[in-house]
Design a protein around this nucleic acid. Structure first.
Lengths: 357, 357
DNA sequence: GGTCTGTCTCGAATCGATTCGATGCGGTGA
DNA sequence: TCACCGCATCGAATCGATTCGAGACAGACC
């Protein structure tokens, strides 16, 4: 007591009341005379007691006040994508409303021990977990959380789980974009895709690779195009949703003469699309005169000015907030349904009819 | 016991041992027969017991295994800056090594109640806190943490505190950049600065505003230029370290004819510099022929290609890691000194001698 | 005066683990 | 044979709070 921080018991004895009364003075859950309360608070002030220790409180209540946000990648890679940031921002806001803090866990899969899981996933205190990025259908993280009995919300990830999923209507949005390109008259459409899985290869996709496709947004956005009858001349898998990766993929996709190369490139994210724009510029191609470029996400990319990207707008922050609210419902004992947000095609200046032959 | 999750006591009684022995089987801190241990683990497996409850463990050990990372802004604003992301990435990595999780707290100052503090800062369980962004010298967050007795490491922030600070040598780096410009022959140098404080105005800085300058990197980078004799023709404060803000400030700074406008613009971050480049392009100015532009941070900005920004490179991830290690030393009871990283001038293609008159 | 009601306070149990000191036991050396 | 030692195990205290049921007391009413 001399050295360590004061406890509620110290405060109580200083104030001349019992521990339970002192507890009441802080929590306010129960009848207490105003005068007594003031005496307790004064004693606390005097001792430099700064409120009930959260650890003791947690143990008793069984709740830690923490929601884990688990990401299957390095932060420096995932969070260079403004998409992730905005979702996270909405999520922390909504969780904050619930009184929950956000424990950030970058749960990198270890290629050498694929079933191993970050120790924090295994043992950190958490009332719920949100998987927002980069998980496989059979991800061990999911298994560990289930074993621990932690309620889980899945942001972007496998849909074949027992956890509720908050996602966007990738497929419909992609289909709308596809129709837009068809109406403009495009026949040779190339796709620069998001990664297929954690392997993060970069290169053209063949049938074998296509069969491995495990990442939900990638698959749905591809299906959307195909659903309106577009057969991509090539699907070029990018290493990550980053400008640099889009540029690299763009350079490979846009090779060839006017008769061979695609007249339109659909990138599966705005950052990839920005990279493709840069690649086109480097190759001396005019957008949209020589080639049309479209993205996905609806980011605000001022440095593309004066170009305005044709893209599919998704509600990023709202998606994060919805994930947060779903955590709340899970904790309230409900069994929420999956949730799908609508998206909207926004036509900019980067798509136009294909060049005449 | 029927409904709730099994506890160590359940496992112990199932295995036919005492609770303390069962604890030993999991923690491994103490002698235990291999055979007994196996029996305990088997019982745990049978009951679906997934390891000791972190809350109980925490209460006993007095440690939560959590380090708070506190940011004085919305995530969607701070984290759109790759600088913040890379620092955070290094930080989480280093804290992970220590077995600490990262509790992310966006502690937005409430303009109506400036002394109020996010409830999580007030009451979340944490073994240490790292303030990485956007704090004033007399920030109430710091006061609350001190009252709670939480060890604090300051990333970018007030240097006049009792907490150790991990920073970079802004001033020397800025001075090197200043000398580079002087050697090229520049006389009219404008500055596009980082925000001065949380107020986030955007506009030219007058003496009164200059006196309010409370944000360490802004001040030091300004001092560095002045220390080599550069008197900026104007200091234009930007709203945030973002491309769009840099563009806006750049448009205002680059007004005027060849004889009036600055021949060089020093932006206090690479994102701001990128915005200035865009502004110059929009105004029909060639870089570096008509105007030189320099930044700070040393980011990888592929979409500026073929330009390569002249900038001051700072070790972002290493800085984050150092902050993490400093937390470790604080927890070990040491009293670490402040830490300052060196930076390095990297000359790119965006600076050249001023145009002849 | 006695009883009842309502308000305030208290003691003790509880949350789930860790840890320290004690105990029992088989084996060794004198 | 006895004292002693080390290993494995156990019991009980402990961490810091919350909460429930019980008790004390004052005022109101019959």
């Amino acid at each position: 007591m001399a050295h360590s921080r004061p406890t509620l018991a110290d405060v109580a004895s200083t104030a001349g009341v019992s521990v339970s009364t002192a507890s009441l003075a802080f929590s306010g859950s129960g009848p207490i005379a105003e005068e007594t309360r003031a005496r307790v608070l004064a004693a606390a002030e005097r001792l430099g007691y700064s409120g009930p220790n959260p650890l003791g409180r947690s143990l008793r209540s069984g709740r830690s006040g923490i929601a884990a946000v688990i990401i299957g990648d390095h932060l420096r890679r995932s969070f260079r994508d403004p998409v992730a940031i905005q979702v996270l921002d909405g999520l922390t806001g909504a969780l904050g409303q619930l009184g929950l803090g956000v424990l950030l866990i970058p749960a990198l899969p270890d290629p050498e021990r694929p079933t191993a899981v970050d120790p924090l996933v295994e043992s950190a205190a958490m009332d719920a977990a949100v998987l927002i990025w980069g998980f496989r259908t059979d991800d061990p993280v999911l298994a560990v959380l289930r074993r621990r009995g932690v309620p889980v919300v899945v942001g972007e990830g496998p849909s074949t789980t027992t956890a509720p999923v908050v996602s966007i209507d990738d497929q419909t949005g992609s289909a709308a974009l596809g129709r837009h390109l068809l109406e403009l008259g495009h026949e040779r459409v190339a796709v620069v895709s998001l990664p297929f899985d954690a392997a993060r290869r970069c290169g053209p996709v063949d049938a074998a690779r296509r069969a491995q496709l495990d990442w939900a947004p990638t698959r749905h956005r591809l299906l959307g195009l195909e659903s309106v009858g577009i057969r991509p001349t090539v699907v070029m898998e990018a290493e990550a949703s980053l400008v640099e990766a889009g540029r690299e993929a763009g350079l490979r996709v846009l090779q060839g003469g006017p008769g061979e190369r695609p007249t339109a490139v659909v990138a599966q994210s705005d950052l990839l699309a920005a990279g493709v724009l840069i690649a086109a510029r480097e190759l001396g191609l005019r957008v949209p005169d020589d080639v049309s470029v479209a993205g996905f996400d609806g980011l605000d990319l001022p440095w593309l000015a004066p170009d305005v990207l044709t893209t599919v707008v998704q509600p990023l922050q709202a998606r994060g907030e919805a994930m947060g609210r779903m955590v709340g419902r899970l904790l309230a004992g409900e069994e929420p349904e999956d949730m799908v947000f609508d998206v909207e095609l926004r036509v900019g200046t980067t798509t136009a009819p294909p060049p005449p032959r």
